[in-house]
Write a protein that binds this DNA or RNA. Structure first.
Lengths: 151, 151
DNA sequence: TCTGATAATGAAAACCATTATCATTTTGTA
DNA sequence: TACAAAATGATAATGGTTTTCATTATCAGA
């Protein structure tokens, strides 16, 4: 990687330090296209940096969430999953497709224009109706994946 | 109430019994327009039926979820919330608007046609692309409510 | 109505992801 | 280099949810 300028900057602005642990965690997040739990990240980091504890993973993820670098998702299966926000990720804007049986999560990137249209209308509507300022939305689709269907 | 035929039927089909506890829990769910946690339901049930324990609440909610009578939501603040599915509820199809500060949840029912259009396209797309059978989706909007903004 | 098989229940303990505590180490800066 | 602030790891605590297990309620058939 060695491309931490963007975060380095962000960390500075928040008075935070860019430490080995934090770099290692970011590196894991950058080099995956999966949806990792804190424990997944812990194990990935652990292979190179056995000294980094699970507590630090959680703390750092919380920090990264607060600075808008990662998003935390709860798919409803106990463990939360984390991924880089659009601004910091190579991934396109996407939603999640979750298999109710095996809990696999797949990204879905089509029909973004249609989605934007709907979301904008809805967000404006809510602004007017309730005075809520909307800044994020999530869309999850639940179903059964082909592998589980085949069983 | 005394209008349990629909569930009574459903319970029968699954070889389940329609007990006092289950009726009491359903009654609470019917007579609210809020998003209740297991504990909320426990407390509501407890006033009339002090003998019913929290374990039964959890077990029953899981059962109701499996039979498609209630939906479980995880808004990401610890406790899961439950509400009747559309088929069994007086509520219209709606989505959730969640205040990130005070965690209030508000229902939002507008722009359903636009939503349907987008969701149908997306669901069909996913069917074709991944072979996933989609049967539910959730849309959550996150923001700051007017009360929290005022503070 | 009784009876036995099965399902449902409550209390308590177990679970397990996440958070808080606190003493120690690391970091950036004077 | 020295010092204050931030970061860390090990451990304990938290808290919502599940399991366990002995007891009780329910239903179908005799």
């Amino acid at each position: 990687m060695r491309d931490c300028h963007k975060w380095g900057q962000k960390f500075q602005n928040y008075g935070l330090r860019l430490t080995i642990s934090r770099e290692a965690i970011l590196e894991v997040l950058i080099n995956t296209d999966k949806h990792l739990s804190a424990e997944d990240i812990f194990m990935a980091v652990h292979s190179n940096n056995p000294a980094i504890g699970l507590t630090t993973i959680y703390r750092t993820l919380e920090l990264l969430k607060q600075t808008g670098i990662v998003t935390k998702f709860e798919f409803g299966h106990g463990k939360a999953k984390y991924e880089l926000t659009e601004e910091y990720s190579k991934k396109k804007h996407h939603h999640h497709l979750i298999c109710k049986k095996c809990r696999k999560v797949v990204d879905y990137t089509d029909f973004i224009m249609e989605e934007k249209e709907y979301i904008n209308k809805a967000a404006t509507g809510m602004q007017n109706k309730f005075g809520f300022d909307i800044d994020t939305h999530i869309i999850h689709f639940y179903g059964i994946c082909p592998e589980c269907k085949a069983e």
